[in-house]
């Protein structure tokens, strides 16, 4: 007997939202979905924290940087957790430098957003400041200078969740910026199951290892 054919499944609908400047947003993002952030004005900033669905394994910036020999976040990097797993992959971006060395001011935006999910100050791990750049001088202390208007309206970054995540976004201006807050558009999409999944970007050996382990263990 021929089994009844199942209708081709269609992807979950995309979710779009505009976060105004100096506001915060958070959502669970299932493995495989992509989150695209778009700057809606020059000088935009999106401060991002990521926590795994187990509610303990957090984005670890030092491990992410030393595993991939980088002091900035750029396309083709895997964002790694405290426990050595891949949380998300930076699939594409119109910018090749997103700041991850200078944190965020201790305002209430991220803390309140964390609190909605039962998290608190203890979970303020290092963040990524997407769309912002703080340049490093080749001097004895590696001095830092904030670069105004690194991002222009229309710049984007797309992350793919490599396991189920909670993602937190604040649009407060970068801590070293004296410019106005800018809004950020976001789009959460599920790849069409009828199509081949987007291939991994070109990754270093360490990033490939983190992705493989994650897929074997939990994704």
């Amino acid at each position: 007997m021929t089994p009844a054919s199942t209708p081709a499944s269609s992807p979950a609908p995309a979710h779009t939202h505009e976060i105004p400047g100096s506001a915060a947003w958070s959502a669970p993002v299932r493995a495989g979905r992509t989150l695209t952030l778009t700057a809606l004005a020059d000088g935009a900033n999106a401060t991002v924290l990521i926590i795994g669905a187990d509610r303990l394994d957090r984005l670890n910036i030092p491990d992410t940087l030393k595993s991939q020999m980088s002091a900035r976040i750029k396309p083709g990097m895997v964002l790694m957790s405290d426990r050595g797993l891949a949380l998300a992959t930076v699939m594409t971006s119109s910018l090749d430098w997103h700041d991850c060395l200078t944190g965020a001011l201790p305002d209430q935006l991220l803390l309140l957003e964390l609190a909605k999910h039962g998290f608190g100050e203890a979970d303020l791990h290092a963040c990524i400041n997407f769309f912002s750049k703080v340049s490093v001088a080749d001097d004895p202390r590696a001095s830092l200078t904030y670069i105004p208007d690194h991002a222009n309206a229309g710049d984007t970054v797309t992350l793919r969740a490599d396991q189920d995540l909670l993602i937190f976004v604040s649009t407060a201006p970068h801590a070293l910026s004296d410019g106005p807050a800018a809004s950020i558009a976001l789009q959460l999409e599920t790849p069409d199951p009828a199509e081949d999944p987007a291939p991994d970007p070109e990754l270093c050996e360490e990033a490939i290892r983190a992705l493989r382990l994650t897929r074997e263990l939990i994704a």
């Binding site: 491990d63 595993s67 790694m80 405290d82 426990r83 050595g84 360490e206 290892r209 382990l213």
Partner: peptide, 8 residues
């Protein structure tokens, strides 16, 4: 960490 050593 043991986990980051595995990755690196």
């Amino acid at each position: 960490s043991q986990e980051s050593n595995v990755i690196r």
